[in-house]
């Protein structure tokens, strides 16, 4: 709400799953603040709670206790429909499962959030053309999701998430299904929108993606064990991958 409120503020957030037998803690007291324009990568082994955390930040999973504030507004107490409105207005999602609307074209899938957000059809189309172009999907606009490969669907999901220029982009392994060339397209687009001020929180085990971030948060057993900036490398500025490529005489 207020101009200087952080985009995300999680306070002592806990998630305990209880499916039948014993309660299983997935997230155990996480505090996380993300300021406007920040790019935060969340890393950690599988089962460390990273996906659960971003799902809770987007309201796709409820927290057991703690508080979640988005853009200065308390969000963890919202109803499901309250979350739906908040998401439509403020959040773009890219998840491991793509959730594209099956009976709509790629173009319509990408335009939909912008149209729902009240943007004019002409602007929605311009934004869609730009995003699909950046992701190398310009010629797939009229295809249906079922005709796309997994990697293409994932990129469409990213385009859709960015269509509305959301206050917050949340992503869970956004390059999980991509080969290295498509990953490059995704990285380039993430770098561009981040440069334009897009706030990004993403879960990844891909170091190329994480190295784009300003800050890395590492989770272990549902707790944050490290949270800080990626340092400037101590190496001389020009090229030379000397640490990995070695000259031997």
């Amino acid at each position: 709400m207020t101009a200087d409120a952080p985009v995300v503020r999680a306070v002592n957030v806990v998630k305990i799953y209880q499916t039948g037998g014993l309660p299983v803690p997935a997230v155990r007291g996480v505090d996380l603040t993300v300021e406007a324009g920040e790019f935060v990568a969340i890393m950690g082994p599988s089962g460390s709670g990273k996906s659960t955390l971003v799902h809770m930040l987007g309201g796709l999973d409820t927290r057991t206790s703690g508080e979640i504030w988005l853009d200065g507004r308390r969000a963890d107490t919202l109803s499901e429909s309250g979350w739906a409105v908040l998401r439509r207005e403020k959040i773009g999602f890219v998840f491991q499962f793509f959730n594209l609307v099956a009976n709509m074209t790629v173009a319509d899938n990408v335009e939909l959030p912008a149209l729902l957000g009240g943007v004019s059809p002409r602007q929605a189309k311009e934004r869609r053309d730009y995003l699909l172009g950046e992701l190398g999907l310009a010629d797939r606009a009229e295809a249906s999701p079922a005709q796309l490969s997994g990697g293409e669907q994932q990129r469409v999901a990213l385009a859709r998430a960015l269509a509305n220029q959301p206050r917050l982009l949340l992503a869970d392994e956004p390059t999980g299904n991509l080969d290295s060339r498509n990953t490059r397209d995704v990285l380039r687009l993430l770098g561009k929108v981040h440069g334009q001020g897009q706030t990004i929180v993403l879960v990844t085990h891909d170091a190329r993606v994480a190295s784009m971030a300003d800050r890395v948060v590492s989770l272990l057993d549902g707790q944050i064990v490290d949270d800080g900036a990626i340092p400037k490398s101590r190496r001389r500025p020009l090229g030379a991958a000397g640490d990995v490529v070695e000259l031997r005489s």
Binding site: R208, V216, S218, D226, P231, S233, G239, A241, V244
Partner: peptide, 25 residues
Amino acid sequence: RMALVNRQRRHYLALMRDLRELAER
């Protein structure tokens, strides 16, 4: 160990950023 691993992770990511920028150039 926790501190060592955390420092090393950030260092690797800094190296990765260098490599990415090198690839772009």
